[in-house]
C-alpha cells in the first residue's frame, strides 16, 4: 500500500531569468513500513522536497498524496490538521520547546489534536518510557543531551500515531552512539510499527537501515548517484563535471566538450574563434 504517492512534482522559485526549479518533475511512491533515504549534494532540492511532502510549501505542479490525501488539492487552512494527524516531523536541531519539559513537549501535540489532558499525558509518558526517557520526563530540554532531545522529538512525532514520519538530518547533530540509537528507533518504527519513514540526510550510515535510497540532484530524482567513471573534465576551469548531466556542451571538430557553466562554455568558444 502506498503511503506516499508523488507524481510529476515541481517547485519553481523566482521568475524570469532568476527562475530555479528546486524540484523538477519528480515522481515516486513509498509503501507502508518502508524506510526511504533521500540523499544528494547541498542545494539539490532535498529539503524542498521534504518541505513539500510535509505540506509546508505549495507545489508549482504535480500531486502529493499522503495516506490517500492529496495535499495539492486541500485548502491551505486544512493543512495544519493533516500535518497534526498524518505526519510526524523530526528535525536536525530537535526543535523542542525550551520552556516545556520533555513530557509537556510531547503532551502538547496530543492536546493540540483534541486529546484530553489526562489522556495526552498518559500517552506522552508511555511514549517517552518506550524511548527510555522515563527518568527525564520532567526535565527541561536544556538539561537533556542531544540524543535525549532527539528522542523527545521522536516521541512528539509519534504522539498522534501518524502513518508517515519525515526526518530531516535526524543524526546531523548527534554523536556516533546517539546517531545509531536514533537510526535503530527509525528502523523499529518502520519494521515493528509499520510506519513509513522518509529521511533526508548526508549520513551514509543510514543507508544500512534504509530499504531504498533516492538520489536527488538539480531537483531530479535518480535511483543512484552518477558513477565516477562518467565524469569528464571541463576544458576551461579543469573541474570534473558529470558527462551525462553536464548543463553545457559544445562540439568542435566532432569532439564533444562538457562545461560546468555557461561562462566556461563562452570562454571556450571565444578561445576557439581566436585560434
Amino acid at each position: 500500500m502506498h503511503i506516499v504517492n508523488v507524481t510529476h512534482l515541481k517547485k519553481i522559485f523566482g521568475s524570469g531569468a532568476a527562475q530555479v526549479a528546486a524540484v523538477n518533475d519528480v515522481s515516486f511512491t513509498v509503501d507502508q513500513g518502508e524506510i526511504v533515504l533521500i540523499m544528494g549534494p547541498s542545494g539539490s532540492g532535498k529539503t524542498t522536497l521534504l518541505t513539500l511532502l510535509g505540506g509546508l510549501l505549495t507545489a508549482t505542479a504535480g500531486t502529493i498524496q499522503i495516506n490517500s490525501i492529496d495535499l495539492t488539492q486541500v485548502k491551505k487552512q486544512a493543512l495544519p490538521g493533516i500535518r497534526l494527524q498524518e505526519i510526524g516531523f523530526v528535525f536536525q536541531s530537535f526543535n523542542v520547546l525550551q520552556n516545556l519539559t520533555a513530557l509537556e513537549n510531547v503532551q502538547i501535540v496530543g492536546e493540540l489534536s483534541g486529546m484530553k489532558p489526562v489522556a495526552a499525558r498518559q500517552r506522552a509518558t508511555h511514549l517517552l518510557t518506550k524511548l527510555h526517557l522515563e527518568q527525564r520526563l520532567h526535565y527541561l530540554p536544556s538539561k537533556l543531551s542531544g540524543g535525549q532531545q532527539q528522542r523527545v522529538a521522536i516521541a512528539r512525532a509519534l504522539m498522534n500515531e501518524p502513518k508517515l514520519i519525515l526526518a530531516d538530518e535526524p543524526t546531523g547533530n548527534l554523536d556516533s552512539r546517539s546517531g545509531h540509537e536514533v537510526m535503530m528507533l527509525f528502523h523499529n518504527l518502520a519494521k515493528q510499527d509499520g510506519r513509513t519513514v522518509i529521511i533526508v540526510s548526508h549520513d551514509e550510515r543510514i543507508k544500512d537501515i534504509a530499504d531504498r535510497v533516492l538520489w536527488i540532484e538539480d531537483g531530479q530524482i535518480h535511483t543512484a548517484p552518477p558513477e565516477p567513471e562518467v565524469t569528464v573534465v571541463d576544458p576551461v576551469c579543469g573541474m570534473k563535471v558529470d558527462a551525462k548531466y553536464a548543463p553545457f556542451s559544445t562540439t568542435v571538430a566532432g569532439i564533444v566538450y562538457k562545461f560546468c557553466s555557461e561562462d566556461c562554455q563562452q570562454r571556450f568558444t571565444q578561445l576557439d574563434k581566436n585560434k
Binding site: 510535509g54 509546508l56 495544519p80 490538521g81 493533516i82 500535518r83 497534526l84 494527524q85 505526519i87 516531523f89 528535525f91 526543535n95 520547546l97 525550551q98 501535540v109 493540540l112 489534536s113 512528539r156
Partner: peptide, 16 residues
C-alpha cells in the same frame, strides 16, 4: 519565532 514555527509545522492551528 522558531518555536512558533515548530508549532505551526507540527500542526498547531493559527488560533492556538
Amino acid at each position: 519565532a522558531r518555536e512558533y514555527g515548530v508549532l505551526k509545522a507540527v500542526g498547531a492551528p493559527n488560533r492556538y
